[in-house]
């Protein structure tokens, strides 16, 4: 493993990461009042790594730009976006052409909601996607098997998206990823609004995929759901990752957590202390010189207001904080 890669733990040192995102920054050119154009920074200096057979959860509040990370990896950003940094896939740089070539084949997206399905197309056709005529029969068979596995009845494949219930939609969306035999699956907010049973089912589908050797990235705001299945959790805050923790760190009242924000997040869960810290996430056009968590941090010192803290390896995870050793 090259020295560049900062995020890695003992067990993963043997294998190379399937996807490496390094110092990714994303901004949008927008029109401000009148005719001036401004650049709005949405993601800054973000680094994560995804390993085959492992689940990485990216946890952060909604509207903080998590979904755009998925869109950046898949190369489906709008034309006014500016992307900087490096994305490596399987050891090679992932360029826009390469993204277009392998998305839907090696990289699959499980989108957020039904609106990603074509409302005028029958479900089975969408799951199979575009295939050559001679492969159609084979794909149909594969699709039936997958549907059977996910407890979708044969009549579902003739349905239109609006006829599906919430849980069924979720299963259909998951099967679109499964059928592509992807090596990397990115799930964008797969859980909101699901009751406990459906939630657990959905999470198990991702677990299955990881067990089969896929690298899975789950982007979610629901830290509880993330804890149930993932191996690592990247804590996303105001456009960057503050900490990558192992799931075990969240045990014992979260004492092993490194970043004050992660700890605050843990304490705010209803089954824990349900305790909120003051303040709000900085808005996208509010730029700070120091640590982005500075305003809300209880442990801040002078150093924190000067310069963004660099990633440090601490106890098998990484963290961006000056006060951790």
């Amino acid at each position: 493993m090259r020295s560049k890669a900062k995020i890695c733990t003992e067990e993963n040192k043997k294998t190379e990461a399937l996807l490496k995102v390094k110092d990714l920054s994303l901004s949008f050119i927008q029109y401000a009042s009148g005719l001036r154009q401004t650049e709005l920074k949405v993601i800054s200096d973000l680094s994560i790594e995804a390993y085959s057979g492992k689940i990485l959860a990216v946890v952060g509040s909604s509207g903080s730009g998590k979904s755009l990370l998925a869109h950046a990896i898949l190369g489906i950003l709008p034309s006014n976006a500016i992307l900087n940094g490096r994305i490596e896939y399987d050891g090679k740089e992932l360029t826009q052409e390469k993204k277009e070539e392998i998305r839907g084949k090696e990289i699959a997206l499980v989108p957020q909601s039904t609106t990603y399905l074509d409302p005028l197309m029958r479900v089975s056709n969408q799951v199979i996607g575009c295939v050559e005529k001679e492969n159609e029969g084979l794909m149909k068979k594969v699709q039936r098997e997958i549907f059977q596995k996910y407890d979708l009845k044969p009549n579902v494949e003739r349905m239109f998206p609006h006829e599906l219930s919430g849980g069924m939609t979720r299963r259909v969306l998951v099967s679109t990823a499964v059928i592509s035999s992807a090596k990397l699956v990115i799930a964008d907010e797969p859980t909101p609004g699901l009751d406990e049973k459906t939630l657990n089912e959905t999470l198990n589908y991702f677990k299955d995929m990881a067990n089969k050797g896929c690298a899975v990235i789950i982007i979610t705001h629901d830290i509880e759901a993330a804890l149930k299945i993932s191996d690592k959790i990247a804590v996303f805050y105001a456009g960057t990752v503050l900490e990558v923790a192992n799931v075990e760190d969240f045990k014992n009242n979260g004492e092993n957590l490194r970043h004050p924000y992660t700890r605050a997040l843990w304490n705010a869960l209803p089954q824990n202390k349900f305790q909120a810290i003051k303040g709000h996430q900085p808005m996208q056009d509010e730029v700070t010189d120091g640590c982005i968590f500075y305003e809300r941090c209880s442990k801040k010192n002078v150093l924190c207001s000067k310069g963004i803290p660099q990633f440090k390896d601490v106890n098998g995870g990484v963290v961006r904080c000056n006060n951790v050793s």
């Binding site: 946890v59 509040s61 830290i223 705010a268 349900f274 909120a276």
Partner: peptide, 17 residues
């Protein structure tokens, strides 16, 4: 009706308190 389903845990705790 699910008013804090889409927000992070800290905001959820803030809002409900």
């Amino acid at each position: 009706d699910e008013i804090t389903t889409m927000v992070d845990a800290i905001t959820q705790a803030q809002i409900w308190n």
